[in-house]
Design a protein around this nucleic acid. Structure first.
Lengths: 145, 145
DNA sequence: GTACATGCAAAAAATTTGCAGAGAT
DNA sequence: ATCTCTGCAAATTTTTTGCATGTAC
C-alpha cells in the first residue's frame, strides 16, 4: 500500500479544513478532491487546470491562494528546497544541506556516513541508475528557535 | 578545510571554460570570479547584482545565459529539485525522491533504512533542531538511459 | 574574418496583490 | 450580518528569446 486511497485522503483534508475554520467553498472542495486524487508532484498550474475541468471559471488567484493556505496549515507540502528563484551550488565538495523551515536559509552540512536502503517492494525504480545521494535536513536554525 | 580557496576555484573555472572553448569575455570572467568568491547559495539575481558591482552595465540576459552555460557544462550546480515551478507533495507517507537528471521527472522512493552521521567538525549547526531527513537520489531513469 | 557573446527590449512564465462584490456560516 | 472567499485585472518577480551590434580568438 504505497498510498492511502483518494477517498480517505479527501475525507482527511476536508475534515482538517473544517477543523481549522476554512470554509468549504465549491472551489476549495474541488481543489482538495483534485489533490487527494492526484498522483506524483503536480505544479500549481497543473492543479489549476485540473480544477478547471470541474469548475471552468475558477481563477488562478483562488487556486494559488488556497494552495498557500493549505501549505500554511501544514496540510500540504512543497517539494522545492528554497523559494521560487533558482539557487546555485557554489561548494564543489561533496556535501548536503540543512534547510530552516522558518527563514528558508540553507546551510551546508557534511556527513561522515550516509547509509540508505531502498525498499524495492514499495519502490519501482528498476533499471534506474543512481549517481548521487543527497540528504536534506529540515528543521529550525538556531536564530529562529 | 571546508572549501577550497577562491583563487584556486577561480583558476579551475577559468581553465575549464577555456578547455571547452568558452571565450573569456570580461562579463564571463567577472562572473566566474564572483562565483569563486561566493559563499552560500546565491540566486541568479544576486549574482547579477554582484557582477554589476564590477561591470555596472552588464545585462540580466548575459548573466542568466552564462549561468545556464556553466550548468550545462557541469561546472556549476543548481540547488532546486525540479524546475522553476513549485511542485506540491501529495503523498503523506514518509518517503523520499528520485530525480532524473535528463527528463527532470520525480519518483517517490521508499527507504527501509536511513542512517546519516553529521560531521560536527566541519558543520556548524549548533543549536539547530532537526525535524526531518529527506533523501534525494539523483540519476537517470529507465526511460532516459 | 568569423563565430560566438553581448545589450537591449520585449515576451514569457509563475506568482502575488488590491479591490469590489458574492457567498458561507 | 459578518467575515471570508472569489474573480478580475493589474502588478511583480524571475527567466527566456530575437535581433542587431560588438569583440575574443
Amino acid at each position: 500500500m504505497p498510498l492511502s486511497p483518494p477517498a480517505e485522503r479527501y475525507a482527511h483534508l476536508r475534515e482538517a479544513c473544517v477543523r481549522r475554520g476554512l470554509r468549504l467553498t465549491p472551489q476549495r472542495e474541488v481543489l482538495i478532491r483534485v489533490l487527494s486524487e492526484a498522483m506524483g508532484h503536480p505544479t500549481a498550474d497543473e492543479l489549476v487546470r485540473q480544477v478547471r475541468e470541474v469548475l471552468p471559471t475558477v481563477s488562478h488567484a483562488t487556486v494559488y491562494r488556497n494552495l498557500q493556505e493549505l501549505v500554511r496549515e501544514g496540510l500540504l507540502r512543497t517539494l522545492d528546497m528554497a523559494g521560487a528563484a533558482v539557487q546555485f551550488e557554489i561548494n564543489p565538495d561533496e556535501h548536503h544541506h540543512f534547510v530552516c523551515r522558518k527563514c528558508g536559509q540553507v546551510w551546508d552540512v557534511y556527513l561522515s556516513a550516509v547509509d540508505v536502503r531502498v525498499n524495492r517492494r514499495r519502490t519501482a525504480i528498476d533499471g534506474f541508475r543512481i549517481d548521487r545521494r543527497e540528504v536534506q535536513l529540515h528543521g529550525v536554525c538556531a536564530a529562529c528557535q
